[in-house]
Amino acid sequence: MSHSETSDTSPADERTVETDHEGSWSANLEGERHAESEARVIEDAREAVAATRAGYHVNLVTHEAHGDPRDYLWDALDATTRPLTVEYVDRCGCGGHVTRVHVHEE
């Protein structure tokens, strides 16, 4: 997985989350705009969970600037209406963190 992000993106490239993933996938929440805003990380993480079909998981790769995602992200994920299991995976080599969110059938 690449942890870099180009600075010359168009507005269409600003979307972090594609919709309706039919398998497990990873959402890169390590870009500059994520480093600048914890609220942006939470918003995009919720979108990533919403885009993940039941029976699969999404790895949320978060920027190191906000620290351990268990301290700021997990409560926001628990507040969603979908049945989820959230687990901390590890730190990335780049300093970020990986949280795996399993989405269950309703």
Rank of each mutant, 00 (worst) to 15 (best):
V89W: 04
L73A: 10
L84S: 05
D20A: 09
L77G: 09
P69W: 03
H97P: 04
T85Q: 03
Y56R: 10
D78C: 13
T99N: 07
T52F: 05
L29T: 01
G95H: 08
D68V: 07
C94V: 08
D13H: 13
V49E: 04
E18K: 08
V86S: 10
P83S: 12
E43K: 11
E38R: 15
V58A: 03
A65G: 11
E22L: 02
V41H: 06
D20N: 11
E18R: 12
G93Q: 03
P11F: 07
A65K: 13
D13I: 01
G31V: 08
A76V: 08
D78P: 00
E38G: 09
E18M: 15
T62S: 11
V103A: 02
A79M: 00
P83K: 06
V49T: 03
T16D: 06
T99E: 05
E64V: 12
H57Y: 15
L73Y: 05
V89T: 07
R91C: 07
A48F: 02
E47Q: 15
W25H: 06
S26M: 08
W25N: 05
E18W: 06
W74Q: 11
L29C: 02
G67A: 10
D13M: 15
P69M: 05
E64C: 10
W25D: 04
S24G: 12
T81E: 15
G31R: 09
R53L: 13
H34S: 00
A76T: 02
V58W: 01
P69V: 08
A54T: 07
A50R: 08
E30F: 10
A76C: 09
E36M: 14
G31P: 03
V103F: 07
V61H: 03
T81D: 15
E18D: 14
C94Y: 14
E64Q: 13
Y88M: 14
P69F: 03
A65I: 09
T19R: 15
H21D: 06
D20W: 04
T99L: 07
Y56L: 04
P83Q: 12
E30I: 04
A50V: 10
A48Q: 06
L77K: 14
D78K: 14
T99I: 11
R70P: 00
D75T: 15
R15E: 14
L29P: 01
H63L: 13
E36R: 12
R53G: 06
H66A: 06
A35N: 05
E38S: 02
E64F: 12
V98S: 09
V17I: 08
E47R: 12
V98I: 15
A76Q: 12
E43Q: 14
A12C: 11
S37W: 01
A12R: 12
D90V: 00
S26Y: 05
P11D: 05
R91E: 13
T19E: 15
V86I: 14
T80M: 14
L73F: 10
A79R: 06
D71M: 02
I42K: 03
V58Q: 01
G55T: 02
H102A: 09
C94M: 04
A45T: 06
E30K: 12
Y56P: 00
N28M: 05
T16K: 00
I42P: 02
V17W: 00
E14S: 15
T81V: 10
R100Q: 14
E47A: 12
W74F: 14
E38D: 09
A51M: 01
N28C: 06
H21M: 12
G67H: 09
Y72R: 09
G96E: 02
E22N: 11
H102C: 10
E18G: 11
G31N: 05
R82G: 06
V86N: 08
A50C: 04
